[in-house]
Amino acid sequence: MPYTLLTDEELFAMVRDQGDDQAFRTLFKRYDKRVYAYCLRALGSHDDAQDVFQTIQLTVFDKRASFHDGSFAAWLFTISRNFCLKTLRGRKHTVEITDEVITVEPEETHSSDFLLRQALHTAISRLPDEFREALSMKYFDDLPYEDIAATLDITVALAKVRVFRAKKLIQQSMSTIIDELR
């Protein structure tokens, strides 16, 4: 069976049990950009994101024997989150999302969508951490509620509530501009 048809957990079992490096590469490619983007959003700079990303990947490799059941994605993002939080705790100041993190295509500069997107990013950056985190996992990391819940160590119901409340806050924040641009 081609590697691409295997589940994350099947691929990871091949990496762990058989030392299959092709299975690893397939799995890595499924998540490398998502995990990197997660680190970048959390840490705000490419330098930090690269350091933490490397640590995460090595940790996943070193701790591969400890993963046996459950969702690989949830396990991966739990490790990612822990390292990002550890890095953030080591800082004396917080970092806001900058242009380095979010690059908007220049040709859209004057479109209404551009204004909406700018407003969206601003609204997201102002969300309480717990809401922004759940929302980002849902929409940017493309995780199902079950994995979000497992990663954040909360119930699925609470994960849904946080995502909804995040969207509600964004809607309230953007209400005026949505109305104006309609």
Binding site: K33, Y36, A37, L40, R41, H46, Q50, I97, E100, V101, I102, T103, V104, E105, L116, R117, L120, H121, L135, Y139, F140, K167, I170, Q171, M174, I178
Partner: peptide, 16 residues
Amino acid sequence: TVERLLQQDPPRVAYP
């Protein structure tokens, strides 16, 4: 509208 924007507009990242 928010839902559409979120689904269509994940932050663009210059991946290394």
